[in-house]
C-alpha cells in the first residue's frame, strides 16, 4: 500500500493535483483524488509490558482501544470518536484529546513516533517506539495535529498506560465561578481527578486510579455519586450531551484554566477550566476570539461532534513564516490541501 500511495503522491505532485487524505469521514477540502487510509490497517506490534503499541493509520480507533483494554491498558488522552468508524490516523492528524487531557496529557504527549509519506512521496520515519528519545527534532509531534497538511501518516507508535482500577464521578451544584475555583484548587491537591466538566449548573468530577485513592478522595471532596458515569463521560466526549444539541453555532475557547466565566453566555467549562464552550450566534465568534486572547489562548468556531479546523489565527508573523517554510519542505508541490492558501500565511510571507 505504501508504494502505491507513494506513486499516487508523486503523480499528483508532477501534475499539480491535490490529494485528499480520508479516513472514516469525507474530507471537505478540495481535491482531485483521495487516499483512503483505511486501506492500510492493523496492529503492527503490541507489547503491553513495554507500554508501547504500534498501529497502521487506517486501524479503527475502536479496534485499538479494544485490544489495549483486553490487556488492561488505554490511550490515556481519551480521544473522541466522532463516529463509530473513526481511525487512529485521524486521531493523530486532528490531534484531538478528550476529558482526561489536563490530567494525563494530549495526543502528542503519548505519540512516540510516526511514519509519514510526505508531499514528495518519501516515506519517512521520525521518533521511535521507546519512551525517551531526543535524537533530532521531535518531528513526530510536529506531525500530530497538523491536519494532513504535511503528509499521510502511515504508522504511529503510542505510549500506553494501565486502565484505572477504580472509578467514580461526583457531582456538585455550583455556579460557574465557584466551579472554576474548585477545578483549579483540586488540581493542585494531588487528588486522583481525571476529568472535570461544569455544565448546566453542575460540576462533574471524575475520580479514577487505585481503589484506596479514589475512596479517600470521595470522602474528602464530597458531592453526590453519578450513576452510570462512564456513559455520561462518553456522551460528553462525543459531544452528544444536550449542551451540544441544536443549531446555534458552537465556539471553543482554549484559555488559562483560571480565566473567569463569561457573563451572560450559554457556556460549559471543561478540562479543569482550560477549555470553554459557548453556544452563540456566528457573529459572536470575534468576541470569543478576543476573550480567549485576553486569557492566553485562542478560539475557533465549529460544528458539534467533529474535528475543528486547522487555525493559525493570532500567531506572530515570524511564526507564520516558519509554518510556511515547514509546509514548503514537506509538501513543496502543495499536494495536500490546507495551509498553503491561507491569507494569513501569505501575509506572513510578506
Amino acid at each position: 500500500m505504501i508504494e502505491a500511495w507513494q506513486s499516487q503522491i508523486k503523480a499528483a505532485a508532477a501534475k499539480g493535483d491535490k490529494l485528499a487524505i480520508v479516513g472514516s469521514s469525507a474530507s471537505a477540502l478540495p481535491a482531485v483524488s483521495t487516499i483512503d487510509t483505511r486501506q492500510h490497517s492493523g496492529i503492527v506490534e503490541y507489547e503491553p509490558n513495554e507500554l508501547v503499541i504500534v498501529v497502521r493509520c487506517g486501524t479503527p480507533l475502536a479496534t485499538v482501544e479494544k485490544t489495549m483494554a483486553d490487556a488492561g491498558q488505554m490511550l490515556a488522552f481519551e480521544p473522541p470518536y466522532f463516529g463509530a468508524e473513526s481511525t487512529i490516523g485521524g486521531v493523530v492528524a486532528t490531534g484531538l484529546s478528550g476529558p482526561r487531557r489536563p490530567y494525563a496529557g494530549s495526543v502528542r504527549d503519548f505519540v512516540l513516533g510516526t511514519k509519514i509519506i510526505d508531499g514528495k512521496g518519501d516515506h519517512l520515519s521520525f521518533g521511535g517506539k521507546v519512551m525517551k528519545n531526543v535524537a533530532g527534532f521531535d518531528v513526530s509531534r510536529l506531525i500530530t495535529g497538523s491536519m494532513g497538511t504535511l503528509g499521510v501518516i502511515t504508522e504511529i507508535a503510542f505510549k500506553c498506560l494501565p486502565l484505572p482500577k477504580a472509578q467514580q464521578t461526583r457531582v456538585f451544584d455550583l455556579n460557574a465561578a465557584d466551579a472554576i475555583d474548585k477545578m483549579n484548587r483540586w488540581y493542585g491537591q494531588a487528588h486522583p481527578v481525571t476529568a472535570t466538566t461544569w455544565v448546566g449548573g453542575r460540576l462533574y468530577v471524575r475520580l479514577a486510579g487505585a481503589a484506596p485513592a479514589v475512596k479517600t478522595a470521595v470522602e474528602k471532596l464530597g458531592g453526590e455519586a453519578l450513576e452510570n458515569d462512564a456513559a455520561w463521560w462518553a456522551d460528553w466526549r462525543e459531544q452528544k450531551h444536550a449542551f451540544f444539541a441544536g443549531e446555534t453555532p458552537l465556539h471553543r475557547m482554549s484559555c488559562k484554566s483560571t480565566a473567569p466565566p463569561l457573563d451572560d453566555a450559554e457556556q460549559a467549562i471543561d478540562w479543569g477550566g482550560a477549555q470553554r464552550w459557548i453556544r452563540a450566534p456566528l457573529h459572536d465568534g470575534a468576541k470569543a476570539r478576543y476573550w480567549a486572547k485576553q486569557f492566553g489562548g485562542f478560539a475557533t468556531t465549529q460544528s458539534a461532534g467533529s474535528a475543528r479546523q486547522f487555525s493559525t489565527e493570532g500567531l506572530d508573523p515570524a511564526l507564520l513564516d516558519v509554518h510556511a517554510k515547514i509546509k514548503a519542505s514537506f509538501d513543496p508541490y502543495s499536494v495536500f490541501p490546507g495551509l498553503e492558501k491561507s491569507p494569513l500565511l501569505q501575509a506572513g510571507e510578506g
Binding site: G95, R101, P102, S106, R108, R141, L142, T144, G145, S146, M253, S254, C255, K256, S257, W271, A274, Q275, A292, F295, G296, G297, F298, F310, S311, T312, E313, G314, L315, L319, L320, H323, I326
Partner: peptide, 8 residues
C-alpha cells in the same frame, strides 16, 4: 491554555 493554533 492546553493547546495553541498552528503546528506544535
Amino acid at each position: 491554555g492546553l493547546d495553541s493554533p498552528g503546528y506544535d
